[in-house]
Design a binder for these strands. Structure first.
Lengths: 335, 335
DNA sequence: CTGTTAGCGCATTCAC
DNA sequence: GTGAATGCGCTAACAG
């Protein structure tokens, strides 16, 4: 272990001077600076990050809690987080929770133990358990996509889900659809409520019924899309247009519809949310709502870091713009 | 900041006793243990991770270098890494390099500065630059999928690419194909060479020509698959079977072939590598080679952690089994 | 501009 | 079984 002391001896100066040479070179004379830098090089010295962090009390690290690593939508968010974090001198600790409260708790505790300075929550079950009530006290935390259930207000970066689902509904209405259905993701969530409310508001304006039996699903997975179609095709009134609450669900739905011998969009139109990469390349390409995932990640870091620095935050809710991407999985209602 | 001293005062004992109560409770009498634990609870004390790590000199953290977060294959590996790391008490720092040598360098340096104890490389360009020659000296490091170019031998967890591509080639030969092509990923890589060698070996046995003009591509992306098809369809002799070097390329290829008015597999068979989730649900479902990504991640952690602990490693190369998944994107050669 | 001193929070000697 | 003292590696305050 080559430490600062060894370098100081090598350069014939004090350890303080070595430290200064590296942290604030302008406080050191040209001559000694050169001497020190040479010694640093000769010794192959790198300052021990752990030691500096103990002093400052800050780890310049943030934890990202994500329910599922394989969802490309989350990963695009994390890409934005990573980029922004690096620009600000922060590292990213990955917290794959798999939806487990114990794991969430464990990762959240890292902030309490100075292992990290703050938390970005891509899941939405915080505060996880009763055991975390204390812990939730004063954590620097930002939520992406989903508001956090807690007395304390945490900032949130989200999409205008209400408006986005209204846009999708109008898009499908424009094609003359009258029989709708939805395959949703996690039910106990803000997203679920807002998107459903958006759809309902439009259909009510048009006096089109939308019953509970037309809503199915429960997970953001391809399998949920397949199972959802199985259910919906068994209904007495088969829907001609289906809202899928993310693109994975939509991919499963398209797959199942085609497997059942029906066509997309001639028999059934399918629309999704997220605009993941592959959505443009399946058959048919998916009509979906583009979410600026990368930017959401970047903004989350901005907000979190100012929280960590104790700066007052301008607004606690940030709504990013969406974009309706019309592709070929939606079309005129069958006659 | 509630520190160990505050707790010791609250419990009326020394800081050493508090420390012991938490680290090795059996060295403390029942009575004082209870007293201390009560004080810990009352103060809401959590040991400062940074401080303990300075002492031990180990951060129990590993860095994962990944070229691209959106590739679901990598993310499955990282899922395995995360799981195994957590079981062993390690945290995972995410290093999204985007293929940039500067970033790779920066992340690799973290190990030198005690910010992390070791490195898992999912990319394969180490040692990144000349500047890293020193750095490469004695880094605990494991490579997944791809051997590292360096004098020093680093352990590697990989697939038997040679055998896997031979299996694919035999599969296609069994369907009577005689005109082959390949859309490859990164060219300067072990994977490229091994897979191509596997294909070549089988085709040579059958006296089937395989020229350089039948090999195209250069990136592991959907776009590369599309561009590859554009090239291959322009050849005088159109191939009837195409090896894609990952599923993303294959998805692009299938998309482009259908867009050109041809059918998969009736006109052209397409096979991939990786078996990412969505491959089973596109139209047609993809014939591909399943790589045990999750297990690869787990094994990588096993090997890395024993390296960190200074244990001698049994073997420096570990080859995991593959599985040929036959689906509907491959079929009889057109007559 | 530079060296000395002190201390971050904790864990590990070594005494008792 | 417990406490006092020491030091991890580094940086900040204070002298000079």
């Amino acid at each position: 272990m080559t430490n600062i002391k060894k370098v100081s001896e090598l350069a014939g100066v004090s350890t303080a001077t070595v430290s200064r040479t590296l942290k604030s070179p302008d406080q050191v004379s040209e001559a000694t600076r050169e001497k020190v830098l040479e010694a640093v090089k000769a010794a192959g010295y790198r300052p021990n990050w752990l030691a500096s962090s103990v002093k400052s009390g800050r780890s310049n690290t943030i934890v990202v809690l994500v329910p599922n690593l394989v969802n490309p939508f989350f990963m695009r968010i994390i890409g934005g987080i990573e980029q922004a974090a690096q620009e600000k001198g922060f590292s990213v600790l990955l917290g794959d929770t798999q939806g487990s409260p114990e794991r969430e708790h464990e990762y959240a505790s890292m902030v309490l133990t100075n292992r990290a300075d703050g938390l970005i929550q891509l899941d939405h079950s915080f505060p996880f358990s009763a055991a975390d009530a204390d812990l939730a006290g004063d954590l620097p935390m930002v939520s992406v996509c989903e508001r956090i259930h807690s007395e304390k207000k945490y900032p949130v970066i989200e999409l205008d889900n209400y408006a986005a689902s209204r846009a999708l509904a109008h898009h499908l209405l424009g094609y003359g659809h009258k029989h709708f259905a939805a395959i949703v993701g996690q039910v106990s969530s803000q997203i679920y409520r807002e998107r459903l409310a958006g759809i309902r508001s439009v259909l009510q304006e048009e006096q089109i019924p939308f019953e509970q039996s037309q809503i199915t699903g429960g997970a953001y997975t391809i399998e949920a899309g397949i199972a959802g179609i199985a259910h919906l095709l068994s209904l007495p009134q088969r829907p001609t247009a289906i809202f899928c609450f993310n693109d994975d669900i939509a991919i499963g739905a398209v797959h199942a519809i085609k497997k059942a011998g029906l066509r997309v969009p001639e028999d059934i139109s399918v629309v999704g949310f997220d605009n993941i990469k592959v959505s443009a390349f399946i058959d048919p390409p998916l009509t979906t709502v583009d979410q600026p995932a990368y930017d959401m990640g970047r903004r989350a870091v901005d907000v979190l870091v100012s929280q960590i620095r104790g700066e007052p935050l301008a607004r606690s809710k940030e709504v990013l713009p969406f974009q309706l991407i019309e592709r070929e999985s939606s079309g005129p209602a069958p006659v």
